[in-house]
Amino acid sequence: MSEKFRADFYQNFIEDDRWKYIVNGLGNTIKITLFAVLLGIALGFLVAIIRSTFEKTGKLKLLNLLCRVYLTVIRGTPVLIQLLLIYFVVFGSVRIDKSLVAILAFGINSGAYVAEIFRSGIMSIDNGQLEAGRSLGFNYSQTMIYIIMPQAFKNVLPALGNEFIVLLKETSVAGYIAIQDLTKGADIIRSRTYSAFMPLMAAAVIYLVMVMIFTYFVQRLERRLRSSDH
């Protein structure tokens, strides 16, 4: 048993330096996820601000409409189709770094979900907080920044962490536009060695460990932010 395991391991990871598919793939996965998350948070934040400003004050009507179209289209179609459309249609006739395409696609996709997470956080804060801020003389933006946002962020942190986890795993379809991410790397090994268990399990374990590490840090941050609830 252990003889066979050792032989399998050697064949899948050591021979021909096949471990490099895993390591390089992991690098690509992390790179795409990280930048897509940043893009998603920036986009989502912007959309959430526009939408909740519209809901609270009735201003920004046109932008709000635009945001709603964005949310409907992105949340209503599969992320893989969005990725393929951006790669083959939007950038079909230009040479462009495929990682950049993936970052754009996953970032734009994630932004829609992050927007709704942020918006629910903003709307969950009692209107009295806005009124208290305004009554002191803060303008709308200052009230948002100093008073509403910090509380909203604390409330949505678990949901935001969840969205990050979803995004990390969703990037595993990047192979469809021939990006060698972690999943694709493992699959390449499988196609070379004709043994599926080891490379795919390796990829699965790496995803799992990344998610667990991330979850640990989110929980620590949550605990820290909870210091004001007693």
Binding site: D126, G128, Q129, E131, A132, D229
Partner: peptide
């Protein structure tokens, strides 16, 4: 202004 519900900033 002082409100019925205090509206202190809890964070």
């Amino acid at each position: 202004m002082v409100f019925q519900q205090f509206n202190l900033f809890p964070h």
